[in-house]
Amino acid sequence: MTRENVLALLSGVLFGAGLAISGMIDPARVRAFLDVTGNWDPTLGFVMGGALLPMAVAWQVAKRLRKPLVSNDFHLPSTSDVDWRLISGAAIFGIGWGLAGICPGPGIAALAVQPMSALLFVLAMAAGMRLHSFIFSARSLSRA
């Protein structure tokens, strides 16, 4: 296993542990955060806000580095225009998050803590990703 893979694995384990410890793998807590007119639970907002400080520091450190510590190049996201795929994907994500109370990161982290309840979500997520890949690869082939 390469240094990069070990660091990625450790980062993922740390992220998953943070989600589990903070209670963010509990769908009821997430739905309570989204229920702003009912029994609102601001906990998730504090978790998100708490992530801003280390991320701001990381961006400042990255700006000063010539190259990453464990890779040859930075792999930063490119800027893209807002289009129908972005809007529809965000809408589907938001609706699913609101209904299920769980999103990909916490869903995968929940596999370690409550595997049976998380497994259905993760399988459905994988099926949706595969369906998306199939639809858009078929579209690109038909245009060629």
Rank of each mutant, 00 (worst) to 15 (best):
A126D: 04
F46G: 15
D81M: 04
A8R: 12
V113Q: 10
K67G: 08
V57C: 10
A8E: 07
A112E: 03
I21E: 08
S71G: 04
L131C: 06
G23C: 09
L86W: 04
L131T: 08
A109V: 07
R64V: 06
D81E: 10
G12M: 10
G98N: 12
L99T: 08
V122W: 01
D83G: 14
L65M: 15
W84V: 13
S140I: 11
H75E: 08
L65R: 14
L141G: 07
L119M: 15
L99S: 08
A112G: 08
A32M: 13
G89P: 00
A112Y: 10
A138S: 13
F74R: 02
L120R: 12
V47E: 08
G105T: 03
G107Y: 03
L76G: 02
Q60D: 06
A62R: 13
W59H: 11
E4N: 08
L141A: 14
S88N: 03
G16S: 14
N5K: 06
T79W: 05
R130T: 12
A124S: 15
G16A: 15
M129R: 00
N39T: 13
S140L: 11
E4Q: 10
F134D: 11
G128D: 07
L52T: 11
R3H: 03
A32N: 07
L131W: 14
D35H: 11
G89Y: 00
R64F: 04
S71C: 04
A138P: 01
I92P: 00
W40R: 07
F134S: 13
I92D: 00
S137F: 00
I95S: 04
P27W: 15
V13D: 09
G18E: 07
G49M: 12
L14C: 14
T2H: 07
W40T: 09
L14R: 04
E4W: 07
A144R: 13
G105H: 00
A32V: 09
L10D: 05
S88T: 14
G18F: 08
S80W: 02
M116W: 12
P104L: 14
L119K: 02
I87L: 14
I135N: 00
F74H: 01
G94S: 15
L19P: 14
A138Y: 09
L7Y: 04
F136Q: 04
L131S: 07
F74M: 01
S140N: 05
G50F: 02
K63W: 13
L131H: 01
S88K: 06
A112L: 15
M125H: 06
F136T: 12
R64L: 13
G49I: 05
L65F: 05
S80T: 15
A124H: 05
G45V: 05
G18H: 03
G94C: 13
G128R: 06
A20E: 09
F46S: 10
A109Q: 09
A118R: 01
F33E: 02
L14N: 03
F46H: 13
A118C: 02
L14H: 02
R130V: 13
S22I: 03
